[in-house]
Amino acid sequence: MTTVYIPTPLRRLTAGASKLEVEGSSVGELIQAVDAQHPGVAAKILDADGEVKRFINVFRNDDEIRSLEGLDTPVGERDRISIVPAMAGGAATA
């Protein structure tokens, strides 16, 4: 089992759970395993093409998975997967 950390905006889909223990051998499998328990989570993380949305970062331990093998990034039982929505914004423009 691998621990997946769920950010606050997605917790209304996970009955308030901030972390979940799920089984899978890759990050993509873990996301689908979370979605099987809590339908709707995958749709918040993945776009229509099945890729991680631009404004979502997924980490395996301290590494963002885009710098690894994306959703195919392998995971072990001791790994920690964190789903982190980006925080951005900016000034008003004329």
Partner: peptide, 11 residues
């Protein structure tokens, strides 16, 4: 005109 917090900080 924009900001983007480092994802590692948000983690």
């Amino acid at each position: 005109i924009n900001y983007l917090v480092e994802p590692s900080v948000l983690m």
